[in-house]
Every structure is written in structure tokens, then in C-alpha cells.
């Protein structure tokens, strides 16, 4: 059912726009694709060793590389720099607002590989680029469900259509929680163990409530009622058949559901008339939070009981 996609396909020009980089040369290459999430600092290559050159990565050139480059003789400079410009290389980024050596500019235009410049230091620049790439090139999928931030817990509400997911979410939003996405949630894996959900652009801030129609959440509840994205830390499944399976009555065991490569805590809430779904979801979220903080209420309850019985036995 789940298809894994890449979050987005990105080009060098997307990176330029996002990080506000200056294009110094190789302008014709701004439509080159970026395929690797990793970065490369080609210091060792400038020293002449090309056996490990990661040519498909964005090349970051910082003060170390520039200083080293300046120590090379002209012949070495020409030869080694040209070797850096490969078919698959997306672009070069210079940090620190450096004056870029002419040989780089010449090759950029010759091979149509952009040379970009940032005014940042190398480490923060790399962090920025890496964060952006990790999100854009993350594995991604989408799921039917509603994502709400409840007391800081990203709760993905799932269940058959018509079961009342959106209505539950509406009530939660009315209580001050935040909507991320209604009915179609794009989920990407920022890193293994960390799933982030967001709304498809077209339906951001809208909800469909049966009988009423499309509701603009921002107009109705204010800008604070939505969030752009949120890490998913709990999946709540709403189910109508009361006898379909035994529900966890104590909540000791924690079921998990696997989305992409990440396991997320998962609970099933049976729906019956008279149950206040929003309150139940709030409680589930707070319980999740307590557990995250190290408090396992169900376990505590059982331990107390066992301790009581043991004492009773001892006093016999």
C-alpha cells in the first residue's frame, strides 16, 4: 500500500533560492539535478588523490581548501581543479565570501557547473545545506489520516473514511491544538526514527467537515491554529467494530506501526456513541508525553499492585 518516493526532486537553482547563494559562474548549469544528500570537501583531491572523489556530491570549498590551493603551483592548480568538474557534479559552493580563483570560474563556464558563494563560515554553511538536502531528498510517502499537534505531540489520526477523523480534529483545533494536515498527510523520514508530516500545499489550512463543507481553519480559528509540519510521535487508529479485537485495557505493552523505516507508537481507540473522541485523543497524547518523560502509568499501576500482594503474603 505504501509507496516510497523521494520528497522532492531538486535542482541547483532550488538550493540557490533556499539558501540565498550568489551565483558566480557556470550560470547555465543551474538546472542540474542534486541527487546525493551528502556533501564533499575536496581537499584531498586538490592534493592530487582522486581515488575517493565523490563526484556526485555538492562540493564545499572552505578556507582550508582555498589556502591549500594557493600553495599549489600553477600547473597543479590547472590540472587538479579541472579534474573536479565531472559529469555528475551538481555545483561548488565557496564559503566565507572568498574571492574565487580564476581557474574555477573558467571550468565552471566550460563544463556548465555552477560556482556558488555564501557569506557564511564553512561549518554553518554545511549544516544549512545538509539540513535542506536531508528534508528535500528524504524518503517519503503519504497516508490517509489527519495530523494534529496535541500538546506538542504529533498525533496522526487514522481510520476508515467517515469515521470522524476530521470532526475529532476540528474539536481538537477548537480546544487550541494545531492542525497540520487533513485527510492526506505527506510523511517524510528526516532521519531513521524521525518522521515528519506535512500537508500537501493545495489543502494546507483547509478541512472538510461533512455537512458543512470546506472550512478555512486560519480564518476561523486564527493563524495559531495551524502548523506547517510536525514530527509524528503517535498514531491513533479509530475503529468502529466494538468486538474486532481486544483492546489494550492497561496500556502496558506499546504497539508500534512501521512507516517507511521508522516505528511509531500506535494505539487503537474504539468508537462508540457517547465517547468524546477529542478528549480521548488529548489523553492519549499526554500519556505518550508522560511516557516519553519516563513515566509509565500502566507499569506503575501494576508494580503497585504486585507490591501490595507481596506485602500481604509476607504478613500472613
Amino acid at each position: 500500500m505504501m509507496e516510497m518516493l523521494r520528497m522532492n526532486d531538486i535542482k541547483v537553482k532550488d538550493l540557490i533560492d533556499e539558501l540565498q547563494l550568489e551565483v558566480i559562474a557556470g550560470k547555465d548549469g543551474i538546472n542540474r539535478w542534486i541527487t546525493s544528500k551528502m556533501l564533499s570537501r575536496p581537499g584531498i583531491e586538490l592534493a592530487g588523490l582522486f581515488d575517493f572523489y565523490e563526484e556526485d556530491r555538492i562540493q564545499i570549498i572552505g578556507s582550508k581548501e582555498v589556502t591549500f590551493f594557493n600553495r599549489l603551483n600553477e600547473d597543479e592548480q590547472e590540472k587538479r581543479v579541472e579534474q573536479l568538474f565531472k559529469e555528475k557534479t551538481p555545483c561548488f559552493i565557496f564559503s566565507n565570501h572568498f574571492d574565487i580563483p580564476q581557474v574555477f570560474l573558467n571550468n565552471a563556464d566550460k563544463y556548465q557547473i555552477p560556482i556558488l558563494r555564501s557569506d557564511k563560515h564553512t561549518t554553518p554553511l554545511m549544516t544549512d545545506v545538509q539540513t535542506y538536502l536531508a528534508e528535500e531528498l528524504a524518503d517519503s510517502t503519504n497516508m490517509h489520516g489527519v495530523l494534529v499537534d496535541v500538546h506538542g505531540v504529533g498525533v496522526l489520526i487514522r481510520g476508515k473514511s467517515g469515521i470522524g477523523k476530521s470532526e475529532a480534529a476540528l474539536e481538537l483545533v477548537k480546544r487550541g491544538h494545531k492542525l497540520i494536515a487533513d485527510d492526506n498527510v505527506i510523511i517524510y523520514e528526516k532521519e531513521i526514527g524521525k518522521l515528519v508530516g506535512k500537508s500537501p500545499k493545495l489543502i494546507q489550512k483547509y478541512m472538510e467537515i461533512r455537512g458543512i463543507g470546506i472550512v478555512d481553519v486560519v480564518q476561523m480559528f486564527g493563524a495559531g491554529a495551524i502548523r506547517h509540519k510536525k514530527e509524528i510521535t503517535l498514531v491513533v487508529n479509530l475503529e468502529i467494530e466494538p468486538n474486532s479485537h481486544e483492546y489494550d485495557r492497561l496500556g502496558v505493552e506499546e504497539a508500534k506501526i512501521k512507516i517507511l523505516n521508522t516505528e511509531v507508537p500506535f494505539i487503537t481507540i474504539p468508537i462508540r456513541p457517547g465517547r468524546n473522541l477529542a478528549t480521548l485523543i488529548e489523553v492519549a497524547a499526554i500519556n505518550r508525553r508522560l511516557r516519553y518523560m519516563g513515566l509509565n502509568t500502566a507499569q506503575q499501576f501494576i508494580d503497585n499492585f504486585n507490591e501490595y500482594i507481596q506485602k500481604k503474603e509476607e504478613n500472613k
Binding site: 500500500m1 509507496e3 503519504n142 490517509h144 473514511s161 485527510d183 492526506n184 489543502i203 470546506i214
Partner: peptide
């Protein structure tokens, strides 16, 4: 385009553009 939505959901269908 590799994204699958519930056909019974108007938001799901419209979100694909």
C-alpha cells in the same frame, strides 16, 4: 504519481492537484 489517496475523501483527491 506514486501518491495514493482515499477516493472517498475530497481533500485527499484535491490535494493531488
Amino acid at each position: 504519481k506514486g501518491r495514493e489517496v482515499n477516493l472517498k475523501s475530497i481533500m485527499g483527491v484535491m490535494s493531488l492537484g
